[in-house]
């Protein structure tokens, strides 16, 4: 029997097997999706419950919603300024990190300097606290603790390696021929970067920037130590909410929901890019 004939016979066999199992696969995927989705759904539901409903486990996902918790959170005076702080620190640290990291990633991706890439791995390995202790020590002596500058610098410690990591594999995936053609047409290497590579890298840069912003938005430890009451970010504000008002579940869930909404929006709009960014560099081994 020829190979082609064997394959002809083999294909329907696999198809039939898959068809027989597909309902089971559908059930499994549905169950898994619910396991990952329901806790987050529960958070959003609890945000719209009264404080009596939120601690009554017999109240499920169907109830008359109230905006009371959001009103309380916004009136509290801590969460709203903290959101402003988080936004400011997130945007500034992301933009500065991209300015530093994108050209560096291009240089590594184009000229193949993998040893620099391993420095990124070092940045990922080192526990952030072991940097936080000296930073705190030095910044406290310089009287800088509590300033936006310190927060931005500390968040850049996460964002620069993150953007480097994602953009190195992005630039490696871009065809080098376009830049070479531009060089032949008289552009300098830097010109080729600026006019050819950078525009082509816009989707990758956007993805890396979004992930860097999310990392900053979520960062808890740095702000816990380096921020004061005027510069505290949302996770820290949320944490002090637990300590001082541990019974206000509705308020806590409303504040948590407000924090999570931007993330859900990003996940809905750009899931393909986000997945590419999260898994960048993982398949090279």
């Amino acid at each position: 029997m020829s190979t082609a004939a064997v394959l002809d016979r083999a294909v329907p066999v696999t198809r039939r097997r898959r068809g027989g199992w597909s309902w089971l696969r559908g059930v499994a995927i549905t169950v898994v999706t619910l396991v990952f989705a329901l806790p987050v759904v529960w958070m959003f539901a609890a945000a719209f419950k009264t404080n009596v409903q939120v601690t009554d486990p017999t109240v499920g996902l169907v109830f008359p919603p109230t905006l009371e918790n959001f009103a309380n959170v916004l009136a509290d005076g801590a969460i709203l300024p903290a959101m402003g702080n988080s936004l400011l620190v997130g945007v500034v640290s992301t933009v500065l990190s991209a300015v530093l990291a994108v050209p560096a990633a291009w240089a590594v991706g184009r000229f193949g300097m993998r040893s620099t890439g391993s420095l990124v791995l070092v940045a990922r390995i080192v526990p952030a606290i072991s940097l936080l202790v000296p930073w705190y020590y030095l910044f406290a002596q310089a009287g800088l603790v509590g300033s936006y500058t310190v927060l931005v610098l500390s968040h850049m410690f996460v964002s620069v390696p993150l953007i480097l990591w994602i953009m190195i594999s992005f630039f490696e995936g871009l065809p080098v021929e376009l830049e070479e053609a531009a060089r032949v047409d008289g552009l300098s290497a830097f010109g080729a970067f600026l006019r050819i590579a950078l525009p082509l890298a816009a989707p990758g840069t956007a993805t890396a920037a979004v992930l860097a912003f999310v990392a900053s938005w979520n960062n808890f430890m740095f702000a816990l130590v380096l921020a004061d009451e005027n510069t505290e970010t949302v996770p820290v504000a949320l944490f002090s909410f637990i300590s001082y008002a541990s019974t206000d579940w509705g308020g806590l869930m409303a504040a948590s929901a407000l924090m999570t909404v931007p993330v859900v929006v990003v996940a809905l709009l750009a899931q393909k890019h986000i997945v590419a960014g999260l898994t960048a560099g993982a398949t090279k081994g």
């Binding site: 898994v32 979520n218 869930m253 809905l268």
Partner: peptide, 23 residues
């Protein structure tokens, strides 16, 4: 399904912690 899978990865760990305290 992919969107649902991304949310826990991007959500704020502190908020996730508080959510599980309630659950």
């Amino acid at each position: 399904v992919r969107t649902v899978l991304i949310v826990p990865l991007l959500a704020t760990p502190v908020a996730i912690g508080i959510l599980w305290l309630l659950i």
